[in-house]
Structure formats: structure tokens, C-alpha cells
Design a protein around this nucleic acid. Structure first.
Lengths: 231, 231
DNA sequence: TGTACATCAGTGAACGCGCGTTCACTGATGTAC
DNA sequence: TGTACATCAGTGAACGCGCGTTCACTGATGTAC
């Protein structure tokens, strides 16, 4: 929140309800864009704490960052734009994490499973953001900007998944005859595993990593004898 | 909206912005509880149209039903209670639909698949309600009341699913050794299939019913030769 | 090296809006006599 | 059969709140001379 590490020495008189604790030290000249990242961080925190995009208001962000609400207009045209940027960043991070996890591996089965695990790890790191990434219908206000990009990003990541299953089949490790349909099923499982344990913590979940491995292995029709992490 | 079928003859002067179109004819004595259902119906419509529980406000409901906002207090203590009732009803309907679809069938594989199809059909009939049923984290305000009930209802429906897979195994139609874990995986798939096609209509989905059948068959380890709807 | 000044980064007061909630009320419906 | 009256089903005005957005402003930072 205070990236330059300054302590706020003078205690705020706190007359304005919008600025409850201390005040953020102003940025040096040319460092105004730091506030932009602080705004995004604060918005992300609010989103994870409340789980509701509607709670990400200009004034809530301003309170958290320690600035006056109108200061946000210097960096974003309106609160919707903050949310859109949050979604875009989330999508980019998700696909980047999956690709980085798969890239260094050569064994096709391990590549597939590593990508799936990375997907769930990234989703779990910001569960509410992940949920909103996929749950909003496409006709939602933010779909115009973020929706188009998310589809493009998602399709790119999806091709990696299809490729991984194709590689398994080519290597004789899978008997899949329709890698695209099987990749779709894998994605469906990933989404369910990313959402349900978060929203239903009271359910007696079996070990999730084993559930993932077993299920993906069966869906992608990977020969049990050739895989390491078998049930 | 006008359950007794009366037409509103006098056009409202529309001075109050909360009552834009006509006015609802008042109920006869003893029929006050009709308004309760009208309120729930209106709230459900708002939820499906906006996709946001925050949009289900007292005043939005009142506008849609054609009453003054305070009239709702005669039937619900606050807007949260309307939403909670909506979620409870949704959960009851979901589990009832699944059980009704499975009940008349004797073949264990067909029972399992029919239950899964009924689950998706019911979810698709009110996609936003379904989403909110499962997506809200348990620490959300409405979790106190609806969360507990939803867990109980959900576990009951889940036992039906576990039983169906066990039946398949007992009948020699499945080689599943862990029906509980397999039922969990099937639920994960059902949730993904209920959510993703709605939120990502732009994705090139393969035929969903075939995707469901294939995936559930593989997860529950049902022998391909004994099942009818095989790929 | 000192000083006037432009600019950058952000402030504070104000507005109108929709919201939840309260309160006293109204007028049609049914009932007791 | 007629009439006074209790009750039911809902109204309308008002309040305080948090919100998005606007506007004129301020004061520290750096720069030109």
C-alpha cells in the first residue's frame, strides 16, 4: 500500500469518513503511475475479501489506498475500468502460469498433468477473481472489453491443452481419438475443481490432487501402466 | 404478475418513479400470501436478467411487481431474506428434479446418466440461480441460513449419485473401486458443464450431451460394450 | 547559487441518485349485531 | 336485511447513507533563468 516504505507520521484527524486510516504519502514527480498499481492492488483485495464485483467501488478503493476518491480518475475513467483491468491481468496471469509450468517438461503425460495442476494452483491463489473471470455471462458490461480478450487468451491456452493430449496420443500414451473433445472435458473438470472446493468447503472432499490426476487420466484415456501418478 | 387475471383499467399517473407501469390489483382478504409468491417470482426474474444478487433490491422488486417498496416487509424481513428463499427453492427443485428423473429407471447406467442430464437441464432452466447456488463462498451473509440447508440437500442428492455408481459396479457394468471419489468427479464435471457453456457461449463447444455421456462413462469406469450412448 | 514559476499529484466540498427502512395513514373487505 | 366497525393489504412521504461524478483548488516538486 505504501510502496516507498514511508511511515505516516502525523495521525490523520479523520474528519472525512472516506479516509479512515492515515494518508498515503504523495508520489514523487513522474511516479504518478505507482498509484495506478496501488489502485489495482486495493481493488483486487476488495474483490477477494467480498467476492462481489459490486463491492469494488471508487470510494472503497480510495479508502483502502488512502486517497480521495476523485484521485482515481487520473488513472481510470470509471470504476468499471478498474475491474476490467483486474480481469485482464488475471487472465494473462492464468494462461502464463499454465504455459510456464508445461514448457520445461518433455514427457507428454507429465506436461498435461503439470499444466492442469498449475491451472488449479493459479485459480486457488485468487479464487474470487478466478470465479468472476469465467462466471460472468458474456453480455455483462465488462464483456465488451475483457470478454473479447479473455476468449482470445483462453483459446490460446486451450490449444496448448489440446496439443498436450494429441502429444500423448502420438507418443502411444493415450488412446484418445478426439483430443479437442477430450481437452474440453478436461477444462470442464478443471473449472469444477477450481470452483467447488472453494464454495463448498464443508463437503468431504477426497484428496484433490489425486482426484485431478485420476480424472484427467481417464478423460484423456491415458494408459494406466505408463503413467506415474496413478491411483 | 397479476395472478387473478384482472386488467388494470385506470392508467397510473406515474408520479412515483418506483411504480413505472400500472398498479397491481390488491389481493382479496386471506390471499395476501399471493403477493409473497409474486415477490419471489419478480426477484427470480431480476436475478436471471442481471446475474447479480446485488441487483435484487427491495425497490427493484417492488417496481416489477407493481407495489410500493414497504409492502414487501409484510412478507419478508429484508431483501436478503427474499434471496435466501430463492436459493432454498432452487436447491430443493434441483435435487427433486434429479431424483424424479432417476426414480422410474431400473437400469443402473441409465439411472446415472438420466440423473446427470436432469441436473444439467434444471441448471440450464435458471442458469444465474444455479451459478449463485454454488458459487458463493460459505462465509457469505446468506450462508448462515441457506448454506446449511444447501449442504444438507446437496449431500442427500450426492448420496443418490454415489448409489447409482455403486449399483453400476454391483451390476458388473462398472469397474469403479471408489464410488464416492468417482461420484465427486462426476459432480465436478456436472458443475463445469452447467457453468462454462453459459458463461463462454463463444467457445466452439462439441455436442454437450455427447460430451456428458462420454465423460461420465469414463469417470465412472463403465464398460463401453454394455452402454447404449457410447461415442 | 538563488528565486520565480509551471506543472504534477492529488484534495475537499458539493450535487443528485437509488437504496433500506420508519411511520402514520387509507380504503376496500368482510363480520357482528 | 341494513349498518357500524375491525381488520387486512397495502400506500406515500420522509430520513439518512454510500455511491459516482464535477469542479475549483492546493501545495510540493522540479526547472528556467
Amino acid at each position: 500500500m505504501y510502496p516507498n516504505g514511508c511511515k505516516v507520521t502525523s495521525v490523520s484527524t479523520n474528519l472525512d469518513a472516506d479516509i479512515p486510516v492515515g494518508r498515503r504519502p504523495r508520489n514523487r514527480r513522474g511516479e504518478g503511475s505507482r498509484l495506478r498499481q496501488d489502485i489495482l492492488d486495493a481493488a483486487g483485495e476488495i474483490l477477494e475479501e467480498t467476492g462481489s464485483p459490486d463491492a469494488v467501488t471508487l470510494r472503497a478503493i480510495a479508502r483502502r489506498v488512502g486517497i480521495a476518491a476523485p484521485s482515481i480518475y487520473a488513472h481510470f475513467p470509471d470504476p468499471e475500468a478498474v475491474l476490467v483491468q483486474l480481469l485482464i491481468d488475471g487472465f494473462v496471469r492464468l494462461t502464463a502460469t499454465v504455459e510456464e509450468a508445461m514448457d520445461p517438461l518433455s514427457d507428454p503425460v507429465e506436461r498435461l498433468l503439470a499444466g492442469c495442476r498449475a491451472y488449479l494452483r493459479q485459480a486457488a491463489s485468487r479464487p474470487q477473481l478466478y470465479r468472476i473471470l469465467f462466471d460472468h455471462a458474456d453480455d455483462t458490461p465488462e464483456a465488451g472489453t475483457a470478454g473479447a480478450l479473455s476468449l482470445a487468451q483462453g483459446l490460446r491456452a486451450f490449444e496448448v491443452l489440446v496439443g498436450a493430449i494429441s502429444d500423448c496420443a502420438r507418443a502411444g500414451r493415450s488412446v484418445s481419438t478426439d483430443p479437442f473433445a477430450d481437452a474440453t472435458a478436461v477444462w470442464v473438470v478443471l473449472h469444477g475443481l477450481a470452483i467447488l472446493p472453494v464454495s463448498n468447503p464443508g463437503f468431504p472432499w477426497p484428496p484433490l490432487d489425486q482426484l485431478l490426476t485420476t480424472t484427467v487420466t481417464r478423460i484423456a484415456r491415458i494408459d494406466a501402466s505408463t503413467s506415474v501418478n496413478q491411483e
